[in-house]
Nucleic acid binder design. Structure first.
Lengths: 365, 365
DNA sequence: CTGTTAGCGCATTCAA
DNA sequence: TTGAATGCGCTAACAG
């Protein structure tokens, strides 16, 4: 019946002119059936619809909006790696809400790789599909920056410092310092670190500080991805690597939970024999009782939304607007209280112990 | 210097014609500086830029795209209540990823109220800002449905059955039945229920089944919002309401965690003296060891994305495509094993006990 | 009920 | 380097 010839002969797809011709009507009629006007005979409507089906007609949004004189709400595109679940939740939600309050649309893009990122950015440039850009946890080349600058598309960077771009980051080095301070204050002698894949800057920063403070020979391993299971596998390696360990710091709360599972399975007393510290303080960590380094993730999203709103309102965004937020170690049930008075924060409440789980070692995978 | 007179005198904002006139150049030149062409004198470029600043020029996206002959990627708008965090994460992520894989943009809209919903839908209609719609956990009037049908905007409904609309829901009644079955099988005599605000259909369904099965006089209270704190407050009320309680079922995992906190604070043995069951099985519930009713949230997002993709590809979506997914009770550490052989699922692994926490009652708020 | 006509705001030849 | 003219695909009067 239909050979899809339309799409091959008509670059950009068929238009209402094509439909009108094929259905033997005027373009206005085509427009009418598109918009569901009641002022059309059932017969002609069907004819038009058939023509549209036959030709695989897809109305052009831009043209519709232009002709309909609709207001054009600004749209910001946010690129972020969804896999890092906590970040996705914690940042995208406030971002979406704050932007919505400012009547700005948000389009989320999952970025799985560098190629992915470039593909998405290329498309954005080609289609000019957004008026502003939010980059999360990722870098961007200088030419790219220039490209968007030329197009007048302002951008902010979340969780990644970028020269010339307004960015919001957290003080990863200080967070790691606080964690190690607490651990030493509470008697830890040999501290290991479960890091993450180095393509994430936050992980690199945390790892670098750990190495600087704990020594280049301090036990360290990297989780292979972002899941709890990876954290657990890493813990297994770490424990094997360094049997004398009495504390584990993780680049991420999930890794810490994975480590906790392994320790639990081995019947290791936490925090008695082994202390564990995470990083991020994602939701539910207070319930679980994980000692961790709290990162104001909510503030990241809000800051980004605020800057984007300003930029869209005409303000110029430079990296002088950049901020580096403080983080705070939160002592809960997976660490012992510090003996020496340190400068770390003591959780006010909610720090319930994860409990002394008496479980026989079983799955020493 | 500038009185913003432009915006008041020119409906829809200034155009390149206005800029061109004010800068004393042609529209082509304005276009060139907009797009960062190098073939423009610095002087004229500055003049144009100043004119743009003075008039508060905002290029019209639709026009740019139309003129640039850019391809127009379909866009789906998803409306969902962000406050129900677990749902947001669990559904929006797979939705976003699956749509991205199909080269479809996703615009998320937070819906806080019925007014909010209508406002957003009105805008979508007015601006024709999407080619397809995904409604999550919310109803929609018949006229609305018709309106979108006329515009040729297909829609799917997630977590809410809607006549005439392809929807994906879960079997809340059966989930509640399974939970109560298990509880009875494990010796519970008096079961209470912490429900949620009745404007959420899922809560209403769970509550209705509870009432039908446990009796109209069974202890029941409703959390006032969606947080753990609300759950805890509800638990306090429930405990007061019915001192003889030996099991609590919750409409939501968060409520269950809140209840657990309260019980923990009171030093009540769980699951010895009191069993607790949640609903949803959101992330980390396995780690925490909460017995709950697992809902395949991931599948909801994927189903929605798949249907949307089909619809965008030309298929027609009717409610004959609708599905109601099964749910399964997952026994973990907050319930005792069933004595009678019931048909409930026994968690294969990962069901670590939440532990017998020996903690003195302290915060009997 | 239907066709004709004129823009919508911008990018882009083509001349100048 | 710059400007005038043309068209992108569609909607919305305005006629018929």
């Amino acid at each position: 019946m239909d050979y899809e010839s339309a799409s091959t002969t008509m670059p950009g797809g068929p238009t209402i002119y094509d439909i009108a011709r094929r259905a033997g009507v005027g373009i206005a009629t085509v427009s009418r059936v598109m918009n569901g006007s009641s002022r059309v005979t059932a017969a002609t409507r069907d004819a038009v619809k058939r023509a549209m089906d036959d030709l695989g007609f897809r109305p052009n949004r831009a043209a519709r909006r232009l002709a309909a004189r609709g207001p054009n709400r600004p749209r910001v595109a946010a690129l972020m790696p969804f896999f890092s679940g906590s970040f996705y939740v914690a940042v995208s939600r406030p971002l979406a809400q704050a932007l919505a309050a400012a009547d700005i649309d948000l389009v989320l893009h999952d970025v799985k790789s560098r190629d992915d990122k470039n593909r998405i950015l290329d498309r954005i440039v080609a289609e000019r599909s957004c008026e502003a850009l939010a980059l999360c946890s990722m870098g961007i080349g200088a030419e790219r920056q220039e490209q968007f600058a030329r197009l007048g598309v302002p951008m902010v960077s979340v969780d990644y410092p970028l020269a010339g771009v307004a960015s919001i980051t957290v003080d990863n080095a200080d967070g790691m310092r606080q964690a190690l301070d607490h651990l030493r204050g509470s008697g830890a002698r040999r501290i290991g670190f479960i890091s993450g894949l180095p393509h994430a800057l936050a992980f690199r920063e945390r790892e670098a500080t750990f190495t600087a403070l704990a020594g280049a020979d301090a036990p360290l391993t990297r989780a292979e991805s972002m899941t709890r299971e990876d954290g657990r596998a890493a813990a297994v390696r770490l424990l094997e690597l360094s049997p004398g360990l009495d504390a584990i710091v993780c680049a991420n709360d999930l890794f810490a939970l994975g480590a906790l599972e392994e320790l639990r399975a081995r019947g290791v007393d936490v925090p008695g024999r082994m202390q564990v510290i995470g990083f991020d303080d994602q939701p539910l960590m207070d319930f679980i009782g994980l000692s961790t380094v709290r990162q104001p993730m909510h503030a990241l999203g809000e800051w980004a939304a605020a800057r984007l709103g300003e930029a869209l309102a005409g303000a110029r965004l430079g990296d002088e607007a950049s901020r580096r937020l403080p983080v705070a170690f939160v002592a809960r049930a997976t660490t012992r209280p510090a003996i020496t008075s340190s400068s770390t924060t003591r959780a006010a409440a909610g720090g319930q112990p994860i409990a002394r789980r008496r479980r026989a070692a079983k799955e020493s995978a």
